[in-house]
């Protein structure tokens, strides 16, 4: 199998939401001596991009998109382990995601994480009921481009504002874009909380992440 076929197969396994095939072709790529960075950028990336487009056009549904994302990540794990030291893969951006203090709801955040990954973002999900200090600490540690704050309850919304204020106080606010979401959030709230953007659903969140980074 030549390089082009391997790239095409990797693309196809994302488009077919098939993690098993994705793992198989990732291994074949390595056995055939293909550059792992090229396999990601010419094989997996176009597949997941097209799947994302299809989702936005309503041709593909959420479970398919998410399984496509799993296929990509499975293959990526295999390929990334073979990237020679000193070389790095380009990413669209690094996103830190979490549900704020006092709020244990995570399904919305998880959907956003899947969609961001599918769109080529590197996502660090810090979970639910995340204390404000942890957000600050993780921003320092991981140096994300975007911080995404989720809250389902109206009672926990204020914690989003707290995170923005804490980032400000720690002198980190200018380094990151903060985006907010969740059933209780709104455009007005985003302004009040001092965030950089708000999205009402997962597709909107992905667009927003690109937008705030100027991509």
């Amino acid at each position: 199998m030549d390089e082009k076929d391997i790239f095409a197969n990797l693309t196809e396994s994302c488009l077919n939401f098939d993690p098993e095939a994705a793992r198989k072709y990732a291994k074949e790529a390595i056995e055939a001596g293909v550059d792992p960075i090229e396999a990601i950028e010419k094989g997996l990336a176009p597949g997941i991009r097209r799947l994302g487009e299809k989702f936005e056009n309503g041709e593909v549904f959420l479970p398919e998109l998410i399984m496509g994302g799993v296929a990509m990540q499975d293959a990526m794990k295999i390929l990334e382990s073979k990237i020679p030291q000193g070389k790095e893969r380009k990413i669209l951006g690094r996103v830190l995601l979490g549900t704020v203090r006092g709020d244990i709801h995570d399904i919305g955040k998880n959907i956003v994480a899947s969609l961001l990954k599918a769109n080529g973002f590197e996502v660090h999900d810090v979970g639910v009921d995340v204390p404000t200090e942890v957000f600050v600490q993780k921003v320092r540690e991981l140096e994300p481009d975007v911080v995404g704050l989720s809250a389902l309850l109206t009672t926990t919304l204020p914690a989003q504002k707290e995170v923005v204020a804490a980032l400000e106080q720690a002198g980190l606010r200018k380094r990151v874009k903060v985006i907010v979401g969740g059933a209780a959030a709104s455009r007005d709230w985003c302004v009040e909380a001092g965030a950089d953007g708000y999205a009402g659903d997962a597709v909107g969140a992905t667009k927003l992440a690109k937008e705030v980074l100027g991509k």
């Binding site: 309503g58 549904f61 479970p63 597709v203």
Partner: peptide, 9 residues
């Protein structure tokens, strides 16, 4: 149920 187009409720 989850709306499979938008991920909303």
């Amino acid at each position: 149920n989850l709306d499979m187009r938008t991920g909303t409720l």
